[in-house]
């Protein structure tokens, strides 16, 4: 036993080193899959995520020929005594046109809480053509007990929306957040109007308490 195994010791060592290199590569690959997945989804729009900060309006002629139904769905979260309501569940827009819809957050609980409304678009390819100029979803919201707060969503469906898409559903799901993480979102392309808008809607005093 000694001689055979000893004789092959260098070869065994080489094999082990090679397998360890593969192993290390696969470990790196496993974690690299997370950013790869994000990039892949961003490029293809596959998981229906929208941009996480304000986008600028694309100036283009409104396509009067086409009308797309825009539907809004809001969902609460387990353990979060909030309600999120939209003034109109469904509107009809032309591609290229910008539109505004108001959402109302209500804290029905007995203490101040922080939450965020996380968007998702169906069908997912539409998420590439949905531009949000102003959205409450870019940041966490803090509501005192019993407080309510209305914020607008200003969006545009661009004209390159695939023609087979007749209806787009935008779902907002509330998720509770840690209490100390109210963050202000930064506009991505520094458009002055967006920055102003974002600041305005973030400001509770002008947010319209009811």
């Amino acid at each position: 036993m000694v001689n055979v195994v000893e004789d092959r010791r260098p070869q065994v060592r080489r094999t082990v080193i090679k397998t360890l290199v593969v192993l290390a590569g696969m470990c790196v690959f496993a974690f690299a899959l997370v950013p790869l997945y994000d990039v892949f989804c961003q490029v293809t729009g596959l998981n229906g995520k929208t941009a996480s900060s304000a986008q600028s309006l694309v100036h283009q002629e409104v396509d009067d020929e086409r009308t797309v139904t825009m539907q809004f769905v809001t969902r609460g979260a387990a353990g979060l005594p909030w309600r999120l309501e939209v003034e109109e569940r469904q509107i009809r827009v032309h591609p290229g046109q910008s539109a505004e819809v108001h959402f109302t957050f209500r804290n029905l609980g007995e203490r101040s809480l922080v939450a965020r409304a996380v968007p998702s678009v169906t069908p997912s390819p539409a998420s590439l053509h949905l531009r949000k100029l102003v959205c409450f979803c870019f940041e966490n919201q803090r509501l005192a007990a019993g407080e309510s707060f209305t914020a607008p969503l200003v969006f545009q469906l661009t004209r390159d929306l695939p023609p087979e898409i007749k209806a787009v559903t935008l779902v907002y799901t509330l998720y509770p957040q840690e209490n100390d993480t109210v963050t202000a979102a930064m506009p991505d392309d520094g458009k002055h109007i967006d920055a102003v808008a974002t600041r305005r809607w973030a400001d509770r005093s002008s947010g319209g308490e009811t």
Binding site: T19, V22, M26, C27, A30, L33
Partner: peptide, 13 residues
Amino acid sequence: IAVMPVLAGVVTM
């Protein structure tokens, strides 16, 4: 060798 690191990665996440 190829997939156990992925499992380890998932449970670590």
